[in-house]
Design a protein around this nucleic acid. Structure first.
Length: 326
DNA sequence: CGGATTTGACCCGCGC
DNA sequence: GCGCGGGTCAAATCCG
């Protein structure tokens, strides 16, 4: 069955931000909000948001704790570190020494659907992400081409795999929704499903259907809170959102209409400010891009630091930042 | 009929 | 070395 919700108004809504959803998805206020390591902690602080957090989450790291408890694999994705090699998130001035205090830095966060963004480096030794797709495919192909070269090929592949693993940015976030596969504007093909240890809920594996785009995402439901869906994106899209997939996120809201402080959307989404990522930037800049010219190629042209930061975010969460033209 | 999903098999890395 | 768990493949199946 297709997971597309073609008939729903929220078709274009991104899963992770489905608190914007005006349709009936049984969205429930999430009592915790957190950002990830890099974006995260500073962006959203659950413990200070005044939610009715479970007692176990009352610590500044409450949200993280929940995330880590969800599943062993999930915890990897919330690893609050950064890939210093690819430097992908360096723009956020992340300092790993702050990782245990990032959440503290936040102010008030009000959000209806939790957004846990966690660009996790794959470089960590503890970050075990076996089975990198490209590597496997290559391995199989090479193995099939010539038997004598198998071992040598495999060694090369293994090396490549390690290198690739180090450079795969991951972003995880949790969404309170009953929908398993949430729309984010891109087209995905499900290529696998596995049972998750200690969880009655399976984990689904999706791959971006766009050619030459090796972005993958995993979707699993928290066994502790079945209403929470954990989505993990791996790598970045190298293409714009498919044009036939329109993001209705901001439909009805024009550039002139938009006001972060008064918007019914963002009035519920007040995210803490990362050290190098202010609220103003978080919302104003993307909107500027959205409303002025949501063109992918222009995204490619990061003119300064702020924009480059948003490029990453926009790629990670395109449907948050883009309004696709009809 | 083409594309998406399902699902069992397989591979790999890691821990013991 | 072996077992386990995560991740992927690919044939079968489903569906519009």
């Amino acid at each position: 069955m297709s997971h597309e919700i073609k008939d729903l108004n929220n078709y274009h809504y991104t899963s992770s931000y489905n608190h914007f959803n005006t349709n009936n998805q049984n969205m429930i206020n999430l009592p915790y909000v957190s950002g990830p390591s890099t974006y995260n902690a500073n962006m959203i602080s659950s413990s200070q948001a005044g939610f009715d957090l479970p007692s176990k989450n009352l610590s500044p790291q409450g949200a993280f704790e929940l995330g880590f408890e969800l599943s062993p694999s999930s915890s990897d994705f919330f690893n609050p570190s950064i890939d210093q090699e690819n430097g992908l998130y360096n723009a956020y001035n992340y300092n790993s020494s702050h990782k245990s205090h990032e959440v503290v830095g936040g102010g008030c966060a009000t959000i209806k659907s939790e957004v846990r963004v966690s660009p996790s480096p794959s470089s960590s030794e503890a970050d075990h992400h076996p089975g990198e797709d490209s590597g496997k495919i290559q391995r199989k192909r090479e193995a099939g081409d010539g038997g004598e070269d198998d071992q040598r090929s495999q060694k090369v592949v293994k090396t490549k795999k390690k290198e690739e693993k180090k450079k795969e940015p991951r972003v995880s976030f949790m969404t309170k929704t009953e929908i398993d596969h949430l729309e984010d504007g891109y087209r995905w093909r499900k290529y696998g499903q596995k049972a998750v240890k200690n969880s009655p809920y399976p984990r689904s594996y999706y791959r971006c259907t766009t050619q030459k785009c090796n972005v993958k995402k995993r979707v699993e439901r928290s066994y502790q809170d079945p209403t929470v869906v954990i989505t993990t994106y791996e790598s970045q899209h190298n293409h714009p959102i498919p044009t036939n997939r329109r993001t209705a996120m901001f439909s009805g809201t024009t550039a002139s209409d938009y006001n972060p402080s008064s918007s019914p959307i963002f009035s519920d989404l007040i995210i803490n400010t990362p050290r190098s990522f202010s609220n103003d930037e978080l919302f104003r800049v993307p909107y500027a891009s959205v409303n002025v010219n949501p063109n992918y190629h222009q995204q490619q042209q990061g003119f300064h630091q702020q924009e480059s930061e948003f490029e990453l975010l926009k790629e990670m969460f395109p449907s948050v930042f883009f309004k696709q033209e009809p």
